[in-house]
Each structure stands twice: as C-alpha cells, then as structure tokens.
C-alpha cells in the first residue's frame, strides 16, 4: 500500500472503532476487544519468538480472578485490579516461562499446556475462585477516582478501547524495537543468535513474561466488563481458542489476531444456540486452516493483494 492509502485505511479504522458502539452491542465489542488483545499477546510469542504456548488461558483466566478478588473481596479501585491482574499474570509467566523454556519445540507447547492444566485444577479447588460457581458480581466501579462512570456500556467501551490500544501499541513497539529484532533472529536461527552473543533464553523469557502480562491485562479487562471470572477462562479449551484466533487471522502479522478474534467471537455469538456444534466447527476450522490456509486471513489477503498488484505473471503458485 502507498502511504496515502495507508492513511486512508487508518482513518477509516479509527472512525469505525469510535463509532462502533452506536451501531453494535457494546458488550459484544468490548468482549471482542479483550479477546483481540489476548490473541495479540499470544501472537507476540508464537509469531515473533517462535514459541508456541498452549497454556495461555492460565494468564487470561487467572488475571480475571485477580481482578475480581482485588476489586470485590478487597474493595479496591478497578485500576488496582487491572494492575493486579497484569502483574499477577506476569509473575505466573515468569515462573512457568522459566521452566518451559528449558525445553524446545513441541515439548514447550506440552509443558505450557500441562502448567495451564495445573492452574486449572488449582482454580477448581482454591476458595477465592469460588470453584464451579465462579467469582460473580464484581460490581463495576467508576474509574480515575470517579471521573469516568462505567455503568454506561458505551462509556466503558471507550475505556476498553483505550486499554486495547495501549496493549496493541506496546506490542507494536516491542516488535519494532531492537529487542523484537533479536527475538525474530532467535526464532529463525537460535544457534546463530547464540553465536552472535545474544542470550536466547533471556530474550525468550522476557517475551514470555510480556506476553503473559498483556494476556493478563486482557483477562482482567474482560472481568471488569462482564463482572465475573469463571473456570472457562482458565480451561484448556480457552488456550486452544486463542491459538485458533491467531491462526485464523494470520500468525506473525500484527493485525491478524485482531481480525481472527473478531471472526471467532462473532461466530460463537451466532452459533451460541448450536451447543456442542461450536466445538465441532472450531475443530473443523483448525483442520481446514492447517491443511489449506496456514497464513490465515491476513496472510492470504496480503499475498493476493501483492499478486494482484504485480500482475498475473508474478502470481505465486499455491502456497505449500
């Protein structure tokens, strides 16, 4: 895209984002934004550090519990709840990440999955999560000491949008910083990065902690919006869902996970009545994407766009 096209696209997206709550149900938009941030945080790890975490629900779900506990049981302001969610998730990420990066490749995925399952079992039993009932009735409190009332969904939408943009901006900065460049180097060739003097493990761990913290921010924000935190958000199914979102949108593209999250959340919304079939459809999407569209919506689109611009002769053969 040319710079002017880029500008027009950005302006269109900004207008769309600002006007959205007047056309669509704000709670749906806020939930989708939370998942979008969650998916972006996941993609930071997989798309840019090459680390496939299959346990990201532990950060997302635990942060929701942290938020709820701080705001409801301790009766603190919501800002502290969000910080607690983010900080708690970062800490959890530090511990699990330090252990998980001791193995590579597919083992890394299995280890994160196992830790997430451990956290899930912990949440089933721990008293502060209220087990199967979940942490309910986390009342929305005004933000910034009363300046921003949050009872109105539309007002809260702009707060959530701001949180999302903060997280998205942070990820953008990470990726385009020297840190991000080293991360990509490690992803592409760890041995070479090591021989150049980069301590790969420290970079990986930092990426893991950052990703966990942002996933936590997303989880805490979701608890703030929906006013509850439940076991669903720490379950293995949720870990799978965020993978699906990033995969559908396009791994390693910065906007892909956002689009993927909106697609999956919209689909779940429309299929809510279909019960078990949501799982079947999600599974089928996994299969189809892995078999045929590994680049995701954004990846395939940008390929098509490039091919169209460079004429039919330069069209790449079917991606394999």
């Amino acid at each position: 895209m040319t710079p002017s096209q880029r500008l027009i696209a950005a302006a269109a997206i900004a207008v769309l984002a600002l006007a959205a709550p007047w056309f669509a149900y704000p709670v749906f938009l806020m939930t989708a934004l939370c998942f979008a941030l969650f998916a972006c945080a996941f993609n930071l790890l997989l798309g840019y550090a090459g680390l496939m975490s299959f346990g990201h629900a532990m950060f997302f779900g635990m942060a929701g519990y942290f938020y709820g506990h701080v705001v409801k049981a301790w009766d603190m302001p919501p800002e502290l709840g969000l910080l607690a969610g983010m900080g708690g998730a970062a800490l959890l990420g530090l511990v699990t990440g330090a252990l998980a990066i001791r193995r590579q490749g597919i083992y890394f995925a299995m280890i994160t999955l196992a830790f997430a399952q451990m956290i899930y079992f912990f949440c089933v039993q721990a008293p502060f999560t209220h087990g199967e009932d979940g942490l309910q009735g986390i009342v929305r409190k005004p933000l910034l000491g009363g300046l921003i009332p949050t009872k109105d969904d539309r007002v809260l939408y702009y707060v959530v949008l701001a949180i999302f943009l903060f997280g998205y901006g942070a990820i953008y900065r990470f990726i385009h910083s020297p840190f991000g460049q080293v991360l990509k180097a490690i992803r592409d060739n760890e041995q070479r990065a090591l021989s150049l003097g980069y301590e790969a493990d420290r970079y990986k761990l930092l990426a893991f902690v950052l990703s966990a913290a942002l996933a936590g921010l997303a989880g805490a924000t979701k608890a703030m919006v929906l006013q509850f935190a439940t076991l669903t958000d720490v379950s293995a199914a949720m870990s799978g869902e965020v993978v699906l979102m990033a995969l559908v949108g396009g791994l390693g593209t910065i906007i892909g996970p956002v689009i993927g999250a909106f697609i999956i959340i919209t689909m779940q919304n429309y299929l809510a009545a279909a019960g078990e079939f949501v799982l079947v459809i999600q599974g089928a999407i996994f299969v189809v994407i892995v078999m045929a569209f590994r680049k995701g919506v954004v990846g395939e689109f940008s390929e098509w766009w490039k091919a169209r611009r460079s004429g039919p002769r330069a069209r790449p053969t079917a991606a394999d």
């Binding site: 490749g105 597919i106 799978g240 078990e276 799982l279 079947v280 599974g283 089928a284 996994f286 299969v287």
Partner: peptide, 17 residues
C-alpha cells in the same frame, strides 16, 4: 511439529464434539 499438534487438536475437538 506445531501444525501436527494443531491439526490433531482440531480433529479431537471435532470427534469429541
């Protein structure tokens, strides 16, 4: 390896669903 993991995860979801 990752794609095999994701593919078989998807198949598990379909079967169990």
């Amino acid at each position: 390896h990752l794609y095999g993991f994701l593919l078989t995860f998807g198949m598990a979801l379909v079967i169990e669903g």
